[in-house]
């Protein structure tokens, strides 16, 4: 553990052994509390029926490996469809949100432009109040979006907070290059795509992650707006078959191809659904994490 103390400043005394032990134990315990549930979920989803049965539930110690649960899930049943729905909504939604947010953030970053103040004010005012669940539901229903995938995208497409963070970032970019491009007759669109965006990869990645995670995790808007359960996103499937424990075998969760043949134990399938809901987030987020400090803290946090 000596690397832990690599750069101790010269004036700081080295903490006593018990203090160091207490600190390291605390940090290790925190890491374990976060990782342990994920570990047993992944392990159980990958365990063969014999291991799940002998453990009498969740598997703590690896006893063989089996991908049967995943094979069942992705054989064309409800879960396959839900994963496709969630992926589609996340991809389209993130694209729509990022486009609208970047454009408006840039459009509002030029102070002194026409109607800049009232438009900005209209964006900022949304911080102070939410429209309320019921009127929003009635609106979505009145514009005919019930049971449409767009109901999962459009109502949450623009997040004023993300917009303001992005705008602040654009305003902190050096303006001289844009100014000279403008003098040379470049259009605003060219300035945005050729000059501003290449300098804003980090903040775009972070805001994109926020939007993507929001769409992937969205649960309640689907409860409200999607009645047709063949259009359910993954989070609703997760709730129905795992949290509420509805039996899988009696439904077409697993595809017709494997029905009747030996399938993975129920618990393993449930845990596999959890893993499927978990994996995209856990894999995408470390790629973006290095931008958190730059993109988010600079833009958002230094209140």
């Amino acid at each position: 553990m000596s690397t832990l103390f690599a750069d101790r400043p010269v004036w700081a005394e080295r903490p006593s052994l018990p203090a160091r032990a207490a600190k390291n134990t605390t940090l290790a315990a925190i890491a374990v509390v976060i990782i342990f549930p994920l570990y047993i979920v992944v392990l159980t989803s990958l365990s063969p029926a014999s291991a799940v049965n002998s453990a009498g539930g969740l598997v703590l110690v690896p006893q063989g490996i089996s991908f049967q649960a995943y094979a069942d899930l992705f054989s064309g049943g409800v879960v396959t469809r839900a994963v496709l729905v969630s992926l589609g909504v996340t991809a389209v939604g993130t694209a729509v949100s990022l486009a609208a947010t970047i454009l408006a953030a840039y459009g509002l970053s030029q102070t002194g432009s026409l109607w800049h103040r009232p438009l900005l004010f209209a964006v900022l005012l949304t911080f102070l109040f939410a429209p309320g669940m019921i009127p929003l539901y009635l609106l979505v229903s009145n514009v005919g979006l019930i049971d449409s995938y767009w109901s999962l995208i459009l109502p949450t497409a623009v997040n004023a907070f993300n917009l303001v963070v992005m705008r602040a970032f654009f305003m902190n970019l050096p303006g001289e290059i844009s100014d000279s491009a403008r003098v040379d007759g470049a259009s605003e669109w060219t300035i945005l795509t050729r000059l501003v965006l290449p300098m804003s990869k980090g903040v775009t990645a972070v805001i994109g992650l926020f939007y993507a995670v929001g769409y992937w995790n969205a649960f309640f808007n689907a409860i409200l707006y999607i009645n047709d359960n063949s259009k359910w996103p993954l989070q609703l499937i997760l709730r129905q078959y795992v949290q509420q424990g509805q039996q899988l075998s009696s439904n077409s969760v697993i595809g017709d191809a494997v029905q009747g043949t030996a399938s993975a134990p129920n618990l393993a399938i449930q845990m596999a659904i959890v893993v499927v809901a978990l994996v995209p987030v856990t894999f995408v987020y470390p790629l973006v994490q290095k931008h958190f400090t730059k993109g988010v803290i600079i833009g958002a946090v230094k209140g």
Partner: peptide, 26 residues
């Protein structure tokens, strides 16, 4: 400034439809 206004339009329209209109719906 029309280009800037055009760029701002989609977001403003989304907020107008899905934030301000339902607020009036109260």
């Amino acid at each position: 400034d029309w280009q800037l206004l055009l760029m701002t339009l989609p977001a403003i329209a989304l907020l107008a439809v899905f934030h301000y209109t339902p607020t009036l719906g109260n």
